[in-house]
């Protein structure tokens, strides 16, 4: 179990969380006995290879998916015990969501997309419109209020999505691969924005990502593999920079030295992939120190 953060007030408390898809011999444990505390104001990245259960875990934290077993406490409230009809209220009150794609409503302007969330929580009229406009202005979109998503760049759309996630002032921001569809410049800008939100507004931010670059911006990186959290890499363990699988250094023959660093791979295929364009993968190298 992990317990760190800027203070000791636990906001997200996961207890032996498990999610199994299917039954019998075809059952797949997407998340397997994950327990975790995330404190108020903390920014946590959950990383891991594809299919490791990152998004499933995030969905359960956000009340979008029921766990097979275990419990999710948000600010002390056990949301897994609540009936289905209560969950929209919980999501509205506690979470701001930022998705891989901005998921803005195409027919609404940037302002209306943000205002919509206020409307859902019962805040209407000029005051809510002003709050939405202020939030967009804070994120540098003051001049783009009346543009529809199709008229905005990918980075701008993602900033609108962040404004939408923040406008109701939820204590927790859940972000699923928020930089996946952005170029490196916009991706970094979005991550810095999330970092500022966490630092300046005291929001708890949980980011699920493949992007190894974000590890420098968060308080804590959690490694999820095969549905289980690995707190840190044991001595002699590293990550295959291509597929992000954990590799035991002394058990693999697939090794490449590049620019004074040694890289380890789970298979010859990953090694060949790396050799084709090492620049693309060198950032993903994760040393055992992390």
């Amino acid at each position: 179990m992990v317990r760190t953060g800027s203070n000791n007030e636990v906001l997200i408390d996961l207890q032996h969380l498990k999610k199994v898809y299917g039954e019998g011999h075809v059952a797949v444990k997407a998340v397997n006995d994950v327990s975790l505390h995330v404190c108020k104001g903390e920014m946590v990245a959950i990383m891991g290879p594809s299919g490791s259960g990152k998004t499933t875990l995030l969905q359960m934290v956000g009340g979008l998916l029921r766990p097979t077993s275990g419990e999710v406490f948000i600010a002390g409230e056990n949301i897994t015990a609540l009936p289905e009809k209560e969950l929209p209220r919980i999501r509205l009150k506690n979470f701001g969501f930022v998705f891989q794609t901005p998921n803005l409503l195409a027919a609404l302007t940037a302002l209306q997309n943000v205002e919509l969330v206020m409307s859902l929580s019962g805040h209407n009229g000029k005051a809510s419109r002003k709050s939405a406009a202020d939030m967009l202005a804070q994120l540098g979109l003051g001049a783009r209020l009346h543009q529809k998503p199709a008229q905005l760049s990918g980075g701008e759309q993602q900033r609108v999505a962040i404004a939408r996630a923040l406008v109701n002032d939820p204590p927790v921001l859940l972000a699923d691969e928020p930089t996946a569809n952005l170029d490196s410049q916009n991706g970094r800008a979005v991550m810095e924005l999330l970092q500022n939100v966490s630092r300046q507004k005291g929001k708890t931010v949980v980011v699920v990502s493949h992007d190894m670059r974000i590890r420098y911006l968060v308080d804590r990186v959690l490694w999820l593999e095969d549905g289980r959290l690995r707190l840190r890499f044991a001595e002699g363990m590293t990550v295959d920079p291509v597929c992000l699988m954990v590799v035991e250094k002394d058990k693999t023959l697939q090794v490449v030295d590049y620019e004074k660093e040694r890289y380890y791979f789970c298979s010859a295929e990953c090694r060949r992939e790396f050799e084709k364009s090492p620049e693309k993968y060198k950032e993903a190298r994760l040393s055992s120190r992390e």
Binding site: K85, R91, N103, A106, L116, L120
Partner: peptide, 16 residues
């Protein structure tokens, strides 16, 4: 459907 899914995720009810 995707947009209705977004609304659901954001916290809208079936009634909305």
């Amino acid at each position: 459907s995707q947009e209705y899914g977004v609304l659901r995720a954001l916290g809208s009810t079936d009634g909305y």
